[in-house]
Design a protein around this nucleic acid. Structure first.
Lengths: 119, 119
DNA sequence: TCAACTATTCAAGCGGCCTTGAAATAACCC
DNA sequence: GGGTTATTTCAAGGCCGCTTGAATAGTTGA
C-alpha cells in the first residue's frame, strides 16, 4: 500500500460515524448490510450515510454490491489490514515496542458476548 | 484505550506532515530529536512544526522532554500501539482476515536502494 | 405504464483545521 | 546585563470536509 492510499484510508477512518460503520459491518462479513438497514441501525440520515459510505469505499475500506434495489456494503478486510500494516511497517518501521503494544489487548472478553443482542 | 482517545489519535495521524514526523522520530527511539533539527530535516517552518508536534503530543502519540533550550520529541510507542490495537480489536472485532492482512508485509526491503528511479 | 421503494446526487451553509508571519517567552554565552 | 538561539503563542486568512433537505435516477411489482 502506497503512502497516499494509506493517508486517504486514515483520513477516512478519522471520523466517528465511519468508525461506527466499520464496527457495524465487520461482523457481517462478506454479506454486508443494505444501506437502508445501516441507516436505520445507526440512526443516520440517508444522504449523510451515502456520503460516508462512498468516502470509505473510495478509500478502499468498504466494498459495495448491488442486489435488486438494495446496495449491500461490506468491509474490505484487505484494505483495512493494509492500512494497519502501513502504520506498523512503513510508518513505524516495525518498531518492536509498537508491535508489542499493538498486539496487546487490554480487554479481551469485552462482555456483550452472550448473544444479548442489545434490543 | 477508549473510543474518543483512539479517534483523536487517528485524526492526528491523518495528515501527511504528521506521518512524516512519526516516521522520522520512530527510529530515534527514546532519545528523539530536537524541534529545530526536525524542522530542518523535513523543511518545515517552525510555527507549523510546533503546531503539528503539539497536536501529536496531545493525541498521546509523542512525548516531549526539555533539555537546555532545546525540546526533544520522541514517539510514544504505547500510544501508537494502543491506537493500532484499537483498530484491530475494538473496531474490527479481531476479524481474522483483518488480522491476517495487517500482519502481512508485502514489500519487506522496499528497494529505493539502487536509485533506479524509473522515470 | 404507473406507483412505490431504495439509494444517490445536488446545492447551500456552517464550522474547524492548516498555513503563515510577527511577536513573545525561555535559556544560554560572553 | 546584553545579545543570540530555540521554541512557542498569537492573529488572520484560506481551504476543505460535514451536515441537511430537496430533487433525481434506478428497480420492483401490479
Amino acid at each position: 500500500m502506497d503512502r497516499s492510499k494509506a493517508l486517504a484510508a486514515l483520513s477516512a477512518l478519522a471520523h466517528e460515524t465511519r468508525l461506527d460503520l466499520i464496527r457495524l459491518l465487520t461482523p457481517q462479513g462478506e454479506a454486508g448490510m443494505a444501506a437502508g438497514q445501516i441507516a436505520e441501525t445507526l440512526g443516520i440520515a440517508a444522504p449523510r450515510l451515502s456520503f460516508h459510505l462512498s468516502a470509505l469505499e473510495q478509500a478502499g475500506l468498504l466494498r459495495s454490491r448491488k442486489v435488486a434495489r438494495n446496495v449491500f456494503y461490506s468491509v474490505d478486510t484487505q484494505g483495512i489490514g493494509s492500512t494497519i500494516s502501513f502504520l506498523l511497517n512503513d510508518c513505524c518501521r516495525d518498531h518492536p515496542e509498537v508491535l508489542a503494544a499493538s498486539s496487546h489487548r487490554d480487554a479481551p472478553p469485552q462482555g456483550e458476548v452472550a448473544g444479548t443482542a442489545n434490543t
